[in-house]
């Protein structure tokens, strides 16, 4: 191909791309559909060097346990995950206590009966309802979804979850709210079946973090992000080493290629 043409087209393409990217990057709101207001937040885990904040994850777990767990399960988490590396890193004894505080169905025993026993580290998080139908009956027909993967199951992930948890507001006068629904600026369609879950001072934080809705929302969102991506820290760590290695290999191969070619081929 004519190189001048290719260069020209290439330049145009990357300038256009750059303009679009910069425009996107500097906007404080995501380009969400249907008028959803989803703000961009600063999280400790975004970016190639992102990590989790242990204390934040521990507070987030507290919020989940005290507020969310009454309706929402997290079936892909196991109690042992709470003390494993890369997460809230509770001491193993604390995780054991959390597990033992719930009852897990086991069996059948020698009589053929199912029985309940205290939870163990190896058990999965117990869901509040046995199945979807029971959950609907307890929630006016609405199904509170499992939260294990919620941070990856919605566009804009953590930003969306935070905006939704802090997005409860009075409905504008022109909007007719359906029965049993609540107005939320971030939720698609703006009408959500879940009542506002977080209120100031409803949960006691013991590490001095102010007990505000904003902090509860941030912390539980970070916890949900970890629940969805428990290997994030390891992925970033291994990724760094792999990228350095590949860049070095590419550099060496480039020099080797030039030398091989200059030897015989012109």
């Amino acid at each position: 191909m004519n190189s001048a043409d290719a260069r020209g087209a290439g330049r145009l393409a990357w300038v256009a791309g750059l303009v679009i990217a910069l425009f996107g990057l500097t906007m404080p709101l995501h380009a969400a559909e249907n008028g959803q207001i989803i703000r961009k937040e600063a999280w400790s885990f975004t970016g190639p060097f992102g990590i989790y904040d242990r204390a934040q994850l521990q507070r987030g777990f507290l919020v989940y346990q005290e507020v969310c767990a009454s309706c929402h399960g997290m079936e892909y988490l196991h109690y042992r995950n709470l003390s494993e590396a890369g997460g809230p890193e509770f001491p193993e004894a604390a995780a054991k206590v959390v597990a033992a505080s719930v009852e897990v169905k086991d069996g059948p025993d020698d009589q053929g009966e199912m029985y309940m026993r205290p939870g163990r580290l190896s058990d999965a998080f117990v869901s509040p309802f046995q199945n979807d139908q029971e959950a609907r009956v307890a929630n006016n027909g609405a199904l509170p979804p499992d939260l294990s993967l919620m941070a990856k199951a919605r566009p804009y992930g953590a930003d969306y979850l935070y905006s939704m948890l802090t997005g409860y507001a009075d409905a504008p006068t022109e909007v007719a709210m359906a029965e049993g629904m609540y107005y939320n600026t971030a939720f698609s369609g703006h009408q959500i079946a879940m009542p506002q879950p977080l209120f100031d001072d409803s949960i006691e934080y013991t590490d001095g973090t102010p007990a505000t809705v904003d902090n509860y929302a941030k912390d539980v969102t970070a916890f949900m992000m970890w629940a969805a991506e428990p290997k994030l820290e390891e992925r970033h760590k291994v990724g760094f080493r792999v990228m350095i290695y590949l860049i070095i290999v590419a550099g060496l191969l480039y020099v080797a290629k030039r030398r091989v070619w200059s030897r015989g081929a012109h």
């Binding site: 992925r235 990228m243 590949l246």
Partner: peptide
């Protein structure tokens, strides 16, 4: 060695892009 090494270099560059997605933007 001419094209084995040239393909090797191109593959390394391709692998950089591949790894960037896998480790930093897998979804």
């Amino acid at each position: 060695p001419y094209y084995s090494i040239k393909d090797g270099f191109a593959l390394a560059v391709f692998a950089i892009v591949f790894a960037a997605f896998v480790f930093y933007a897998p979804n």
